[in-house]
Every structure is written in C-alpha cells, then in structure tokens.
C-alpha cells in the first residue's frame, strides 16, 4: 500500500567553517512515496548528489532529519546504518562500480553475500535477477566483457537482488547513449517499480523525464521547485 518511503526535513550540508563555510545543500525538505519514481534534477554542482547521499545514509547531514519507513536513519550507529542500507536500499552508481575480477553473477550476488547468505544460494538468486534484466547468459562472464548498457543492467540487478524498498540511481544514463539510456530507465519503470518500492533517480538528462512520476529541481543547494507534479497514470 503506497505511503511515505523517504522523508527529509530541513536537510543541510556544509563544508568548511566560519567565513569559509560553503553550503552544498541548504534546508531541503521533501518526501518520496512508495510506488513512485522521483527524479531529482538540476545542473552540475546544484547539490543533487550530496542530497542523495544524505537521504541514502551515506553522508551525515549537518542539520535536518531523514526518515525512511519511519526510521530516523541518522540516529542509527554506523554498523546499524550499514545493515539498514544493505537491507533497505539498493544503489546504482553512475560508474557502475562493478568488480572486474568477479563474474557478473558474483557481482550481482554481493549484497546477499554481505548479508551472510550461503554462496551458492546467493549466486543462484543473482542469476535469477540477471534473468530479470535479460543477462542470464552472461552470468559467468566478467563485467568487462559486457557493453555499457549491459553493465548498467548488471548494476541494476545488483541493486535489486536483496529486494530493497528504496532504489537510488545516480545519473543512470550518464555513461550510455540516448537510446540505451531510455531503454534502461524504461526497464526500471516497467519491471522494478511497485507499490512497495520507491525509486529516486538523480539525473540531468532531460531525455528520460518521461519516465518520472514526479520531478523536483535543485539549484545552488536548494529545492527550487517542482518541475512535474505526480500524475495519476503514466
């Protein structure tokens, strides 16, 4: 049943002190719901990535609060926060960050292995998710043998293998050509979005805006507006 997945209130992040203090994100508040794809857009240096890091439990804010499914994530200890990320959040990094010395299946299985799942079971699950992204036949290959789009799909399979409620995609189309980028995001929308999942995508690629439920815009560390309100149907 859709509800609030992420709630950020008064989030601020600054670097430096005194007169040298520079705000990367200033007093940002927003919420993301289950069952929606929320885009955070804006020019380079607008604070999108910093904000994304704070809501995903990676970068501690100087002020403000982030609640995911009712849990104030920044009140958790480091280990508890790591475990929370492992269970609840799936990441797709801009540069994929796949391990070239592991097979594709092993790369996908990493979150399960970090959860102390049995190796063979984890690999079997990973292969199932590779099937979801259409790469089952590439399970035994190292990622370097795959194209950019295929690597992106492997990264997506890794992000969903532990069935997280929150999916965070950082510039998912940045390393891909236009058509492949649209195919990937279309796939995310069609196959990964559900009533029990919230997907947040940071991008400045306007070609994929069609796939968003809602788009918020950042500039100079602040949310400057809502580019698109949530539609009832896409």
């Amino acid at each position: 049943m859709p509800g609030t997945a992420i709630e950020a209130v008064g989030l601020s992040k600054w670097f430096g002190a005194g007169e040298a203090r520079t705000y990367a994100v200033k007093e940002v508040s927003f919420q993301a719901d289950f069952g929606e794809i929320l885009y955070v857009v804006g020019p380079s240096g607008s604070g999108k990535t910093t904000m994304l890091s704070m809501i995903s439990g990676i970068l501690r804010p100087n002020a403000g609060k982030v609640t995911i499914e009712g849990t104030d994530i920044w009140s958790l200890s480091d280990d508890a926060l790591a475990a929370f990320r492992l269970r609840k959040i799936g990441f797709v990094f801009q540069d994929f960050h796949l391990f070239p010395r592991l097979t594709t299946a092993e790369n996908v299985a990493i979150p399960l292995i970090l959860q102390d799942r049995n190796w063979d079971e984890a690999i079997a699950e990973a292969v199932k998710d590779l099937e979801v992204v259409g790469l089952k036949d590439k399970a035994a290959l190292p990622p370097v043998k795959l194209s950019g789009g295929e690597q992106q799909r492997v990264a997506i399979a890794r992000a969903i293998v532990s069935r997280p409620d929150i999916l965070i995609l950082d510039e998912p189309t940045a390393s891909l050509d236009g058509e492949t980028g649209r195919t990937i995001v279309s796939f995310v929308r069609q196959h990964l979005l559900s009533d029990r999942r919230c997907i947040v995508i940071v991008t400045h690629d306007s070609r994929i805006y069609d796939f968003a439920d809602r788009i918020v815009k950042m500039e100079d560390g602040r949310l400057t507006g809502v580019e698109r309100e949530k539609l009832d149907a896409q």
């Binding site: 990676i58 480091d78 280990d79 475990a83 929370f84 492992l86 990094f93 990493i110 979150p111 970090l114």
Partner: peptide, 18 residues
Amino acid sequence: ENLERFGALKAIGATSRD
C-alpha cells in the same frame, strides 16, 4: 586500484570491519 570498489561495498552496506 580497488579503492573505489571498496567504497562501493561500503555504500552498499559492508561495514568497515568487513
């Protein structure tokens, strides 16, 4: 060479102890 990937592991949910 693997530093970024270790960072990725940390982001995914590996603890420093791991």
